[in-house]
Amino acid sequence: MKINVLGTLSFVLLSPSPAFSCPDVQTDHIEQNRLYSELQMASNEMHGRAVGGQLWEIWVTAPDEKSQEFMDLGRERIRVADYERAEEIFDQLIDYCPNYAEGWNQRAFVRYLRQDYGNALEDITAALELEPRHFGALAGRATTLISMGRVKVGHAALRQALAIHPWLSERHLLPTGEDI
């Protein structure tokens, strides 16, 4: 019988302990506000995408080493399409660090990929309560609603995301000629 030692070890090491929780999520509001302003002023898609990428880097940087291990391992499981295991890892991240918006957003993405749209929307709501300008979560809400057949509501959610990040690739989901 072959045992996956690395997978078992990472599961044991990453299992949350009720005695420990992540530190408070520290947000550099000055830097994020600067980036959001720069995003609004971006004159072309390349610049807008670069600034958006800087915000993503902030979001995927977890509050401590343990939560970063969850984040990295969960994202790796997504990369190899192991969505069931990715969801389990993000469950652990959220249990350990419930005030970390990106944990909720990543689990929402996995649930979307698994076509678990109702639970994806719940996670998106939790992410947006923690980070209301999270254009990725807003775009995720839009694509989830559109996938559910709720196209008009999805387009409204997409317009909210585009008000924050006008260069999102999802902008092409709006009908041609429609104003953002």
Rank of each mutant, 00 (worst) to 15 (best):
E122D: 12
R77F: 10
Q106R: 11
G103K: 05
D123F: 10
C97D: 10
R85G: 06
I78C: 08
A86H: 06
I89H: 03
I94W: 05
R79F: 10
E122F: 11
R79E: 11
R107F: 07
A101Q: 06
N105E: 10
N119I: 01
I94S: 09
E84V: 02
I89L: 10
R75K: 10
Y117Q: 02
A81V: 11
Y100Q: 01
I94M: 10
N119Y: 05
W104A: 02
V110N: 05
D95I: 14
E88Q: 15
L93V: 05
G118N: 11
N99M: 06
D123M: 04
E102F: 10
V80R: 13
N119C: 00
A86D: 09
L93R: 04
D82T: 03
R111T: 02
I89C: 05
F109C: 04
V110R: 02
D95V: 15
R79V: 01
R77Y: 11
E88H: 14
D116T: 00
A86I: 00
D123C: 11
R85W: 14
E84L: 03
I89P: 05
E76G: 11
C97R: 01
E88R: 13
E84G: 08
G74T: 00
V110K: 01
Y83A: 05
E87H: 14
D91R: 09
D91Y: 11
L121K: 06
F109W: 08
Y100D: 09
E84N: 07
A108P: 06
Y83K: 07
E88D: 14
R107M: 02
G103L: 09
G118H: 11
R114Q: 12
R111H: 02
C97F: 08
Q115M: 09
R85V: 07
N99T: 07
V110M: 02
V80S: 07
G103T: 08
I94T: 08
F90R: 00
R79I: 00
R111P: 01
Y117D: 00
D123N: 12
R114A: 03
N105I: 00
R111D: 01
N105L: 07
Q115C: 09
